[in-house]
Design a protein around this nucleic acid. Structure first.
Lengths: 214, 214
DNA sequence: CTGGATAATACGGTATCCATAATTATGAAT
DNA sequence: ATTCATAATTATGGATACCGTATTATCCAG
C-alpha cells in the first residue's frame, strides 16, 4: 500500500495532459473540452480545472476567459528566444557540474555517454533521445542548483510543444554526439569554461537544426 | 462595457495572495486556511484552491497533500542559488537591451535613471525601491525577449519571499545607485558586453548585501 | 447569400455533501 | 504525572448539482 507522498489527483491529471500535449495527441491550438476530458478520465471537472490552471502557469496551455482553454501554439520567434536562454542556463550548469563533479559523478557521466555512443551506433533514435535527456538531467543534478534545474525544466517544457526535436533531424544525431564527446571531454578534464562553451554551442546548434526544417 | 480580457476570479485571488505573501502578511511557513480565506474574500473554495495551485507552481506556496498548503520558506542556500541565476538572466537582458535600444529607449532609460537619482537624493527609500523595479523591467522590455522576462519574473517572485531586500541595507542604496550609473553609461554608450558585466555584478552585490544581514 | 434573432452549449463560479486522513482531545494503564 | 492507545473533531480533496452569462451554432427572414 503506497501511501508515501500520495500525489493529488490534479497532479496526476496535469501529468497525463502534459504527456498528451508533448505527444501532440493534443496538438497546439486545439481546444480542451473540460467535460469531455473529465468524462474520459472518469473524474469531476474540479481537479481537471485545477490541473489546467497549473498547465497555464507553465505556459503549456492558454486560458481564454469565458471561452475555455487551448494548447499553446509556439512560433519560430519563441524558439529563437528560448534556445539562447537554454544555452545560457545549461551552459552554466555545465560549468558548475564540471567544477563540482566528484569521482563517482565523472564515472556516471562517462557511463551514460558510452550508452549514448552505443545507442547511436545501433541507430536507436528514440533510445538515444531518451538517454540524451537523462544526460542533460545528470549534468543538472551534478551542478546541484535546484532553482537552475527548475528554470531549465520550465523552459524545456515550452520547447517540447514543438513537434520537431532537433535530434530527429537528418544527420543531427551524429553532430549532437560529437558535441557530447567534446562536452564529456571537457567535464572529465575538469575545464569548466570549455564545458560551458561547448554546452552553449550544443544547444544553439539544436535550434539551428530545427530551424532548418521549415 | 469593457469585456476585453476580463480577468478570472482565481487570477485576482492569486494576485491578492501574492501581495500578502510578499508583504509578509502571510509569512513564510504559515499555513493557509482555505475556508477562512474563502470566507474573508467572500468567495467559494473553488477559485481559491485554483489560485493556490498556481501559486504552488510558482513556488510561492508548498502543497502538503492531505494537510494543506503553507507559504514557502526560503533559505540562505536558495538565495545563493537564485542570485547567480538572476545575474545571468538579467545580465543577458542588459546585453540585448544595449544592442537593441532605439533612441526613444535610451531616452526612457536616462529619464528613469534621473528619477532614481532624485529619489535617492531625497532619501525616499520606498520610492527608490519602486523605481528600481521599474528600471529593471524597462531593461527587460527593451531586450524584447518574452521568455527571458518570464523566467526572470519567476525567479524574482521567489526571491521576494525574503523579507529583506538588499536596498534596505544600510549604505547599499548609494552603492546600488553607483552601479546603476555605470550600467546606464554602458547602455547609452552602446557597450553590450560591459552592460552585461555591470548588471551581473550589480545583482551579485545585491546578494552579498542581504547575506551581510544575518 | 447575408444579417439578425434565437436556441444550445460550455465556462466560471457557488453551494453542499462526503470519504478520508490528520490533528486534537480523551481516557486508561503504568 | 507521563505515556500510549483510542475516540472525536476538523479540514482537505474530490464529487455532484445547479446557475448566470457569454459564446457559438442554428435558423429564419429579407
Amino acid at each position: 500500500m503506497n501511501t508515501i507522498a500520495r500525489t493529488a489527483l490534479f497532479e496526476e491529471v496535469a501529468e497525463r495532459l502534459r504527456s498528451r500535449i508533448f505527444a501532440h495527441d493534443l496538438p497546439p491550438g486545439s481546444w480542451i473540452d473540460e467535460q469531455a476530458l473529465a468524462a474520459e478520465y472518469g473524474i469531476s471537472r474540479t481537479p481537471l480545472r485545477e490541473a489546467l490552471k497549473v498547465l497555464a502557469s507553465e505556459g503549456l496551455v492558454t486560458l481564454r476567459p469565458g471561452r475555455g482553454c487551448q494548447v499553446t501554439e509556439i512560433g519560430e520567434k519563441d524558439l529563437d528566444e528560448l534556445f539562447p536562454i537554454l544555452a545560457l542556463l545549461e551552459g552554466r550548469c555545465a560549468f558548475e557540474a564540471t567544477a563540482r563533479a566528484s569521482e563517482p559523478d565523472r564515472i556516471a557521466i562517462r557511463t551514460l555517454h558510452e550508452k549514448l555512443e552505443t545507442l547511436a551506433r545501433e541507430g536507436n533514435i528514440s533510445g538515444f533521445f531518451e538517454a540524451n535527456q537523462q544526460f542533460h538531467q545528470l549534468v543538472q543534478e551534478i551542478a546541484g542548483n535546484r532553482w537552475l534545474t527548475q528554470l531549465i525544466q520550465d523552459a524545456r517544457k515550452v520547447v517540447k510543444l514543438t513537434r520537431f526535436h532537433s535530434l530527429f533531424v537528418e544527420g543531427r544525431l551524429q553532430e549532437s554526439l560529437q558535441e557530447h564527446r567534446e562536452l564529456v571531454d571537457a567535464i572529465l578534464k575538469g575545464n569548466p569554461e570549455r564545458a560551458q562553451r561547448v554546452m552553449e554551442h550544443h544547444l544553439l546548434q539544436g535550434r539551428r537544426a530545427i530551424g532548418a526544417l521549415e
